[in-house]
């Protein structure tokens, strides 16, 4: 792969990951606000399934199967032939459809508007939640101090 396609892949991974992890009630208001309903045809209608999550022994050793998680996926094609895929955590077909449409539109001229009005605010919201938790965790970090012993 050329550097150019690597960059394109990295960008797509970033938005698809963001959409997959996004809480439905954070994504949907932003997407609805866009009021975009481009024509499309289903390549694969939304379906709910399970993915077996793997871990590694000791965090770094051989893989093992930990348990499944729910995932909803779908694929669609816009009128201009752009294909979008949605793979999102959970069981919401609405969210999977929005993710696939956004994935498709991000490959078109609409990308700038979608990034500004959906992806960026969404990423900010999710980062704020994450930072708030990290701040609370930081407040529970133990500060050790040594007691001066009374023997001279």
């Amino acid at each position: 792969m050329t550097d150019q396609t690597n960059i394109a892949v990295a960008k797509r991974q970033e938005w698809m990951g963001l959409l997959a992890r996004a809480p439905e009630d954070a994504l949907m208001p932003l997407w609805d606000e866009m009021n975009t309903s481009p024509g499309f045809e289903w390549l694969r209608r939304p379906e709910v399934g399970g993915v077996m999550v793997r871990g590694r022994i000791g965090g770094s050793g051989a893989p093992f199967n930990l348990g499944e998680m729910t995932v909803t996926r779908c694929s669609l094609v816009l009128g201009d032939g752009t294909v979008g895929h949605g793979h999102v955590q959970g069981r919401s077909k609405r969210k999977a459809e929005a993710a696939a449409l956004i994935d498709a539109l991000m490959q078109t001229k609409a990308a700038g508007a979608i990034r500004a009005r959906v992806l960026n605010p969404l990423a900010q919201q999710m980062q704020a939640t994450k930072t708030a938790r990290a701040a609370k965790a930081a407040a529970t970090k133990v500060e050790f101090f040594t007691l001066v012993r009374g023997e001279d």
Binding site: G49, M52, G59, S60, N65, R73, R133, K136, A137, T140
Partner: peptide, 29 residues
């Protein structure tokens, strides 16, 4: 769970990259 189609297996998760809410060690202060 048995009614769900299996989409596949994930890559092994990287627990070294975990966003830790809690992290303690009883061996290393």
């Amino acid at each position: 769970r048995t009614t769900l189609p299996r989409f596949g297996y994930s890559n092994p998760v990287d627990t070294g990259e975990m966003t830790c809410d809690r992290r303690i060690s009883a061996t290393f202060k």
